[in-house]
Design a protein around this nucleic acid. Structure first.
Lengths: 190, 190
DNA sequence: ACCCAAAGCTACAGTCAATAGCCATCAGCC
DNA sequence: GGCTGATGGCTATTGACTGTAGCTTTGGGT
């Protein structure tokens, strides 16, 4: 009984939502199939392997995060842009822990990997934020990577629920924005 | 044929080294047993489960990293201390990718989890570095967490081999130290 | 109406974690 | 020196999971 309407994109979307609910680590072909009301082997008609599915979830996450970042960055510069960037990443990781977890440690598969594409584009957004700080073009790559480290570390520790993020998490978050803002100002006027 | 000399610590140590060699994700009870010249079920006499083994590897990594950080921080303050801190983390993640990977996303198991203990102690080292910058005591927690995010993001992206770290990685690394140094100076004199 | 490709299924093989239950060895003690 | 119990190893087995082979059914296009 072929179901013509079911695309691989829908499967990835379903699997991603499931990962957000039950955790990325516990995502199996079995639970995905169950959610879609099918048997596990049928999934292989749409997806190469579990590894492939996981990679696609990571790609979806990176694309979604990138879009939200670009949306939030419109018309903003300087500290506003920085704060918006951090806020979006924080919200995405909180609302979609499974999707974000999929991106952690996920390797790129060659030159034209969509996941690499999405990650590169996100780095471009970071570079745009840095532009407003007057970071010299020779240093934008280094600065973007540094910012990426800060963002990724924050998101990764968030989804891991590390360091007993107590009620003060909002204050830590504000402190982090100040720190990055002042650091970028100081380094660009050096 | 009982082997009296084999302790669970040795098994964890062996498994950690194996993880550094073949990758944390591909670490199974089978390969650990093979390395130790035993059958997989025998490992369960020393270790509760694969999960337990992984948690112990994460703990070992956090303890080792913490010790190396404390060693490197002796007699240093300000930018020197910050640079030493980043250097140690970078070296540890590079030399022991499997061990560091074990710590990523590893949850704490209750109040008296040795892994939590080691992580808390590492945060203390970060606080010590911050002391040299004159960060107010009310903000050391926020600052230490922020620093932890930066360090963790850097290490996690390192072991994931993300963002095509090309030859310029050393320059990015130096840039990051400058950024953190100037950021801490600026925020503490605010 | 017919064909064929798409999309589902059952059955099965291989891998892995984990348990049950058995046996060999060593330490301490009479 | 020989018993005894704890320790640490083993084989056999179960159950979950990934992935493949091959069959069947449906629906769109001619």
């Amino acid at each position: 009984m072929p179901r013509t309407g079911l695309s691989s994109e829908q499967i990835v979307e379903t699997a991603a939502s499931l990962a957000d609910e039950i955790g990325f680590a516990t995502l199996t072909m079995g639970v995905v199939a169950e959610r879609l009301d099918m048997r596990p082997p049928s999934l292989y008609k749409h997806v190469l392997s579990l590894d492939d599915l996981q990679h696609r979830i990571a790609t979806l996450a990176m694309v979604e995060l990138g879009e939200q970042v670009r949306d939030a960055l419109q018309g903003k510069a300087g500290r506003d842009a920085l704060a918006a960037l951090l806020t979006v990443v924080r919200r995405y990781a909180t609302e979609h822990p499974g999707r974000y977890a999929a991106t952690i440690g996920e390797p790129f598969r060659g030159e034209d990997d969509p996941f690499l594409h999405a990650a590169t584009r996100l780095l471009g957004s970071l570079a745009a934020v840095l532009g407003g700080y007057g970071v010299s073009t020779a240093n934008t790559d280094h600065a973007a990577r540094t910012l990426r480290c800060l963002l990724h570390g924050f998101a990764a520790l968030l989804v891991a629920d590390a360091f007993q993020w107590d009620a003060d998490i909002d204050r830590t978050f504000e402190w982090m924005i100040d720190f990055a803002d002042l650091g970028l100002r100081a380094i660009s006027s050096k």
